[in-house]
Amino acid sequence: MMARGKAALLGFLLAVLVTTLSGSLIQTQFNLAALTALGAEISLATRLTTTAQDLVGFAPLYASLVAVTLTVALPLAALSRRWLPLPAGLLYASAAALGLWLAFMVVDALAPMPTLIAATRSLTGTLCMLVGAALGGVLYACCVGRRL
C-alpha cells in the first residue's frame, strides 16, 4: 500500500515536471516563431537563452497551474477506470490533456486579459501544450504500474 502511494506520488511529480518543462519549451518556440514571421532573425544562441529564461521566468507559474490541474485530473481518471475500460496510459493521458485544456479556459475566463498564455492563442499552440500534458499522463500511468 505504502509502495503504491510512493509510486503515485513519484508519478504525479514526474507528470507535473514533464508537462511543465515541455509546455515551457513549446510556448517559447511559438513566441519566437511569431517574431520570426515578422522578419526577426533569431540565432541558435538567442533561442537557447530565451528558452532558458522562460524555464526560470515562465515555468514556475505554469507548474502551479499544471499541479492544480493534475491533482484533480489524475484521481478523476483513476475513478473513471471503473466505467471506462480503456488502457491506463490512454486514460491518464486524456485526463491530463483535457484537464489542462479546461484549465486554460478557466484561467482565460478569470484573468483580465483574453488569453493568458500567448502560445495558446492558436489551436496548434494549444494542442502542442496539451501533448506535453498527455505525455505526463502516460508517465504517471507507468509509475503507478497500470497496464498501458
Binding site: 517559447t28 513566441n31 537563452t49 522562460d54 515562465f58 507559474l61 486579459m113
Partner: peptide, 21 residues
C-alpha cells in the same frame, strides 16, 4: 512592439529577446 520591449509577459514568459533592433 512586440519585436522589442523592456517588459516580459504577465506569465513571466519572454515576449521577445530584443530590447532594441
Amino acid at each position: 512592439w512586440p519585436l522589442t520591449t523592456h517588459g516580459v509577459d504577465y506569465t513571466g514568459a519572454q515576449i521577445t529577446p530584443f530590447r532594441e533592433l
